Simulated assay, not measured.
Amino acid sequence: MRIVSRRAEAVVFGGRGDVTVSPVDLPEIGHTDVLMETRVSVVSTGTEGWILTDRFHWGGSMPYPLVPGYQKAGVVLEVGAGVDGLAPGDRVFMTTSKVCEPVHAFSGGHISLSQEIQSEVLKLPAEVSDLEAANLVVAQVGYNAASRPRIHGGEVAAVFGDGMIGQMAAQALRARGARVVLCGRRQPRLELARRYSADVVVNVAQHEARWALSGIAPGGVQVIVDTTPSPDMSLYLDVLQPRDGQVVLSGFYPGGLDVDADALQKREVALLTNSGWTCERLDATLDLVARGLLRTTPLITHRFSYHEAPEAWSMIRDRDEDVLGVAFDWTTP
C-alpha cells in the first residue's frame, strides 16, 4: 500500500522576518519523483534574505508560509515507478522540493525529507562530500557568471562582492585562466578569498577601488563580474580597458540599474547577465568540484543543527562580518 503523504520537518518562513522549524506534509510520490532523506542543506544567504524580508519580487509578493532554499544533499529513500538510474541508498543532490498546502515550496530547500522529479536530482560521485554538494546551486551561479565572458587566459578579472557567489565566480574565473582580483568590504571574507578564491583581494572599505585596480591593471581590467545589489557602473567604466571590456551582472538588483548606454556602446562594452540554474550547468559545476577546481567547504563558516535555524537567521540578519557560508545538519534527531 502506497503512503499518501509524509510528514517532514522544515525551515519555514511564516511571514516577514518570521523563522520557525515546523512540520509539513509531502504529497504522494509521483511516477518520476525521488524521495530523499536530507543530510545537509546550505543557505543562500542573499536570495533567502530577500525572501525573508519580502523583497524578492520577481514573482510578486512572497507566498508565506513557505519553505526557502534550493540546495541540499542526502540519500534516496524511495523512487517512483518511472525513475531510471537512481535507487534507494544512492547519494544525491536535490534542488527544489514538493510540499502540501497551506505551506508553499519556495523552493523547498531546507527540509528533512525532500521529494521532487528526477530532473532536479543529481547522483553524487564518491569524491564529492555531502557538504560540498549541498552548496551546488550557489557554486553553479558563480560558475555561470564566470562562463559568460570571453576568456583566453591571462586576462585580469575584477569580481565585486565578497559573498559566496563572488567567491565561486572568482574561483571559476581562475579555473578558466584569468588573474582574479576580488573586491569586497568584509575583511574575514577577504582573507578566505585570499586563501581559496582570488589572486589579489582589495578591501574597498579601506582602499579606493579605482586606484587599487589601476595599480594592478594599468591598462584596465578586461572583465568585471558584479555580485552586489547595487553595481557602480561609473566605477566599472573607469576601471575597464578602453575598448571591448566585459561586465557580467550576477547580483539581484531591487533598485534597478543606472546604465549609461551611450558610454557602453562607444567603448563596445559587452553587458552580460546570468540567472538561475540548469541541469547542464549543475553537472559542469559538480565536475569542477570533483576535480578540486571549485572549493566550497572551506567557505562554510557556520554549521547548525536544523533545529537552530531561527538562531542562524538571527545571526545572518545581524550581518556579522565572520559569516559567509551557513549549513544546516539534518542528521541530528
Rank of each mutant, 00 (worst) to 15 (best):
T47F: 02
G80M: 00
F106I: 11
G108R: 00
G60L: 03
V128G: 07
D90L: 03
G80E: 01
T53P: 11
V79N: 03
W50R: 13
G109S: 02
Q118E: 10
D130L: 13
A81C: 09
E78V: 00
V137E: 15
L122E: 06
M62C: 10
V141T: 12
A87E: 15
R55C: 10
A81P: 06
G80D: 00
S107T: 14
S97G: 09
Q118R: 11
S107N: 15
V137D: 14
M94L: 14
G108S: 02
R91K: 05
S97V: 02
K72F: 13
A139N: 06
R55I: 07
D90A: 04
G85L: 00
G85Y: 00
T53D: 15
V121L: 03
G46N: 10
I51K: 12
G60F: 01
L52P: 08
V92A: 05
G108C: 00
V103P: 01
V99C: 08
G59S: 13
Q115W: 05
E78N: 00
V43G: 07
L113I: 02
L86V: 07
G89F: 09
V128H: 03
A81F: 01
G108V: 03
M62G: 09
G59M: 14
L77I: 08
Y70H: 07
L52F: 07
K123F: 09
V43I: 08
G69V: 02
H104I: 11
T47L: 01
I111V: 11
M62W: 10
A87L: 13
M62N: 13
D84S: 13
S119L: 11
Q140H: 08
P125S: 10
A105C: 05
L122A: 08
G46T: 08
E120L: 15
E116Y: 15
G80Q: 00
G89T: 06
F56Y: 15
G46R: 09
V42G: 08
H104A: 12
V79C: 08
D90F: 04
T45F: 11
P125K: 06
V137S: 12
S112F: 07
G109F: 03
G82P: 00
G60T: 05
A73W: 01
G69E: 01
P125Y: 05
L77K: 14
V99E: 05
L77F: 07
V141Q: 02
A146T: 01
V76D: 03
S129W: 06
P65I: 04
A146H: 00
G108A: 04
A145S: 04
G49T: 08
W58N: 12
V79D: 05
F93I: 02
S107K: 13
V79H: 04
A87R: 15
D54H: 07
G142H: 00
L113W: 03
A139E: 02
P125V: 05
G89W: 06
P65Q: 08
L136M: 01
E116P: 10
H110Y: 02
E127K: 11
W58A: 12
S61W: 14
S114K: 02
A145T: 00
P68Y: 04
E101F: 12
P88G: 08
V99H: 08
A139M: 07
P88N: 03
